[in-house]
Nucleic acid binder design. Sequence first.
DNA 1: GTCTATATCATGATAGAC
DNA 2: GTCTATCATGATATAGAC
Lengths: 233, 233
Amino acid sequence: MTRTADLRQHTDTRERILDAAESLFVDHGFEATSMRMITGRAGVNLASINYHFGSKDALIQNVFRRRLTWLNQERLHALDRFEAEAKGAPLKPHQIVEAFFGVSLCMAADTERGGHTFMRLLGRTYTEPTAFVRQFLAEEYAVVVPRFKQALLRSLPDVPPDEILWRFHFMLGAMSYAIAGTDALQLMAEYELEETDPEALSRRLMPFLLGGLRAPLAGHAGKAKEKGSRRAV
Amino acid sequence: MTRTADLRQHTDTRERILDAAESLFVDHGFEATSMRMITGRAGVNLASINYHFGSKDALIQNVFRRRLTWLNQERLHALDRFEAEAKGAPLKPHQIVEAFFGVSLCMAADTERGGHTFMRLLGRTYTEPTAFVRQFLAEEYAVVVPRFKQALLRSLPDVPPDEILWRFHFMLGAMSYAIAGTDALQLMAEYELEETDPEALSRRLMPFLLGGLRAPLAGHAGKAKEKGSRRAV
DNA sequence: GTCTATATCATGATAGAC
DNA sequence: GTCTATCATGATATAGAC
């Protein structure tokens, strides 16, 4: 149970399994990753997954929980700091984006301890959720999402709430691809791209996100199909 | 071999298999989708997949090829039309975005004949490519990507080429999430979202993409790590 | 806690009758 | 072209010795 995250190689069997599973899930997906592959890479016995986690599904949940609760706390803390500075005034969009996506990119920048791998997994999972994973993610995000949503609503009072939600969703997509990164981009570029420097990625992604978030609304009838009062809670 | 795409239910066994595989691949991924699931949904015999396609991998490729070649042709035609109008002048960013993403969204709007399903599959696959799928996608995009890349370079001469590639990549991510749509968004919204009206989606996504594409560059040193002449071919 | 051995089941693929 | 029956393999999970 020690939380001292040594670099690279964990000695604890539990952590070794989690590390191996995390990286294999990214490359092959949950169901295509067998327990033999996981225990093989972790250098532990096949039966140890069931001993430590009970089942493969429980292992999947632990892979997420291990990092996601911490990540969401950091996102909230970042938001807290900005709101403390603002003293009740609405935040600026770039602060909210910084709090959520900056922290995310920060975790994605950690290649040694697996943060990068995890963020790729998270982005991939968000659009391809198995039933029980979706349920699980919804619970993990239950605290974070409303906070950021409200901050955005206050920050952009002229933009319809639905529009803000969608744009946040688009930003998640852009970030997901950003972190998936060179592997997928290489498919497009004929020449070899530079290594993914975390800071460079942030300098690239952030302006894009803000540009999209603050883009002028489409011309006519953003609320064409009005349906009574449709306001986010 | 008839290309008359009847609505809904195909009578041809081949097409029935392709339809079933397409939708199952979206929901469960390639490897988690068994041939029994596919033939079961298609209402055909288990052995027919191997008879008609030879293997499961070959089936996967056929699922993509069936729609992707057509889609890429449409994207090129749209670009051709704009360039014909422009008579040698550089296109405007919104035209290029319209040509690529407008056509994509148009296919994604087709829910009856499976275009929507396919576009979700394509977006999911782009960041989670099995080895042979990646190879295959690279071939399919070999013609389209350079054309659009060059159009963007001409359209935005002040933006470094690498930056343009990345922003195109980000746009793909935003579109992928946009099409994945309500399923994933619902995870975030506490209230029930409206149905995904295709036109509404386009009105939402397009301004976001353009805002991101044309966003001002990050302040200092966009090319901090210069490495000789790094120009796209 | 770790390991071997094994039970049970689903998978991709094929052979061969019709 | 379609179907049944079947093979070989690999999956998750567990029982029980150490």
